[in-house]
Simulated assay, not measured.
Amino acid sequence: MAGHSKWKNIQHRKGRQDAIRGKLFAKLTREIYVAARQGDKDPANNTKLRLAIEKAKTQNMPNDNIERAIKKAAGAIDGENYEEITYEGYGPTGIAVMVEALTNNRNRTAADLRHIFSKRGGNLGESGCVSWMFNRKGLFVLDRDQVNMDEEELLLLSLENGAEDFEATEKAYEITTTPELFEEMKKVLESEGLTFTAAEVTWIPSNKMYIQGETVKQMLGLIEALEDHDDVQNVYANFDVDEDELAKYA
């Protein structure tokens, strides 16, 4: 899992760009809408909705937008029906890529993503072709400079509360849990006054492919193009790259 914070940093930079273009709030609204549509409209009784709302709030999304999405899901406001679909494929040099989408037209979305993959040195694959390379995990990324305890204390706290893995990188700490223990771990860390660069249930690759040079440029271009698509919510890939290489192209 080491180096996952680098991948998150790519997404955070891209997230800020999306916010400028007005796309990020639209994607967050859709995520809240679908979570509320599929379960209880009260976030206290709907974990998926609760996490979607927390994610929106970390991006400073107004409460009015959040409430409107939930009301739309409840039928108080007319809305469209979206379905969750995960697309799988390969990037340059065979890098595994998973794309989570919310769409009201799966044929259109599939055609669009197939074109994006093909144009940028990859190809859209069949369901199941790369998902076996990823595991569903709870992930917390903490900025080392913002942590108010030493590494050994944080490690012990994490392991005592069910962490599966703890990784210290140059700039961050990365803690993984099972999805079932995600919320419990979040409460424990927050009770210690800790804040997160990222806190989410996500897909983490079981192994990674190291890339450099032109492949880094191609891969970042593919990620950017996929995330630019209105239906795409999240993109995951199993590559690793040195910070210096990342700085050249990101």
Rank of each mutant, 00 (worst) to 15 (best):
F182M: 01
I95S: 09
M61I: 11
G15W: 10
E192R: 02
M219N: 14
Q218T: 10
N105A: 14
Q233S: 09
V232Q: 01
N123T: 02
A101S: 01
G15E: 04
A73C: 11
A101L: 08
K217T: 05
K71R: 15
R16S: 09
F117D: 06
L51D: 01
I204M: 07
A73H: 07
S191T: 08
K248V: 03
E31F: 12
L220F: 08
P92F: 10
I95T: 12
G162H: 08
K27E: 11
I32S: 06
K186H: 13
I95A: 12
V97N: 08
L226K: 03
D230E: 13
M61S: 05
S5D: 06
D228I: 02
A111M: 04
T202W: 06
D64Y: 07
K72S: 07
Q59S: 09
Y90E: 05
A2P: 01
G89S: 12
D112E: 05
G128I: 11
R68I: 09
I211D: 06
E164H: 00
G162F: 07
L194R: 06
D150Q: 13
K27C: 05
G138T: 00
E227Y: 05
V34N: 04
Y249F: 06
P62T: 06
R106A: 15
F140N: 08
E153C: 01
A96C: 11
Y82H: 14
F134H: 04
Y249I: 04
G221C: 05
V232R: 09
A96F: 13
I20G: 15
